[in-house]
């Protein structure tokens, strides 16, 4: 009798374990997607499983991965940051500008972070204080920033960026790209903040119910400000890395990262108001998107077709998230 009950308990805990595994898979579509991609490439493109290729993917995933982590902070707080592309575009032409290209290396690192943080602060002012639509505010901000980048570069950017910028983007520490360490550092910092710090709790509470958070004595305005400032600053960091890859100023750099960052976040199991995937899910999401793009390119699939696939991924992942929350 007792033994029977015990074994019953064990089976039910096994069933529960399987169920929670299945739940995680549905909650964070990036995990099964990543696994599926690796398996598929074993058949389609075995070369894509070699270490050099994987390291290239890792390096390429850094800018997207960074932006997505920042994006997720705003989305947890039921906001959005569509200005990340604008931040990167402006950071890029500024880094290629003589003032920073020939200036002290630290300037090339401080400026993008400060610029991104400032943009985030302005976004937050409009969104949290004036309570205007976050989509439109950050979209408008993006237009302003891209406009500024045209003004700064006179529409004809170019030039060489500081060597330090190139080093951080393309350098290696042993086998691993330095940029990947930057990404891991940011992911760790944000992950710990969300899981352990008061501000992380406040952000999640705010995303769950703004009115309850306000009446519950949480600093809602300040929390949204921090989320947007962090998103902006992290976009600035992504701007450094992306600029380092190409080494020069160009027009509208980072434009496609806006959509891709939403895709990575949603794939990672986070949606408007929070989610289950955490930062790790988002990292996986960024890897999925980058790996897929590389795989498709390797197979000779045209760029437009990649757009189609990326759109389908966002819709599919968002559909899963919506289904889950019902």
């Amino acid at each position: 009798m007792t033994a029977g009950m015990a074994s019953e308990g064990r089976t039910s805990s096994l069933v529960q374990g399987l169920r929670s595994l299945a739940l995680t898979a549905v909650s964070v579509p990036a995990y099964p997607a990543l696994a599926g991609l690796l398996v598929a490439s074993a058949f389609l493109q075995p070369k894509a499983l070699t270490l050099p290729f994987l390291l290239i993917v890792l390096r390429q995933a850094v800018p997207l991965g960074l932006v997505a982590i920042g994006q997720s902070l705003t989305m947890i707080g039921r906001s959005i940051d569509l200005s990340v592309g604008g931040v990167i575009a402006l950071v890029n032409v500024l880094l290629a500008h003589r003032m920073f290209a020939t200036g002290a290396p630290w300037m090339s690192f401080v400026m993008p972070l400060a610029l991104g943080a400032a943009v985030g602060a302005v976004n937050a002012l409009f969104i949290a204080r004036l309570r205007a639509s976050a989509v439109i505010i950050t979209l408008g901000m993006s237009i302003v920033l891209v406009g500024l980048s045209y003004v700064v570069s006179g529409g004809a950017p170019g030039g060489q960026v500081n060597a330090a910028v190139r080093w951080i983007a393309t350098g290696r520490l042993g086998l691993f790209p330095i940029a990947a360490f930057v990404w891991a550092g940011v992911a760790l910092l944000v992950g710990l903040t969300l899981a352990r710090l008061v501000i992380g709790r406040e952000l999640q509470a705010l995303g769950a119910n703004y009115f309850a958070a306000r009446l519950g004595g949480l600093p809602v305005g300040k929390t949204l400000l921090v989320a947007h400032v962090a998103s902006g600053a992290i976009a600035g960091a992504a701007g450094i890395v992306l600029t380092g890859y190409i080494g020069t100023g160009t027009l509208n750099l980072g434009n496609e990262l806006v959509l891709a960052s939403l895709a990575a976040v949603v794939l990672g199991g986070t949606s408007f108001g929070g989610g289950r995937g955490g930062v790790l899910g988002i990292v996986a999401g960024a890897l999925v998107i980058t790996y897929l793009a590389n795989l498709l390119r390797g197979m000779g699939v045209a760029q437009p077709f990649q757009l189609v696939i990326q759109g389908l991924i966002v819709a599919g992942a968002a559909g899963l998230a919506a289904h889950r929350s019902r």
Binding site: R196, L197, V198, R201, G217, L218
Partner: peptide
Amino acid sequence: RNIAAGLLPGLSGARLA
């Protein structure tokens, strides 16, 4: 989380929750 939310007000955001 809903219960522990009562402990958050007044704490600095940078502190451990």
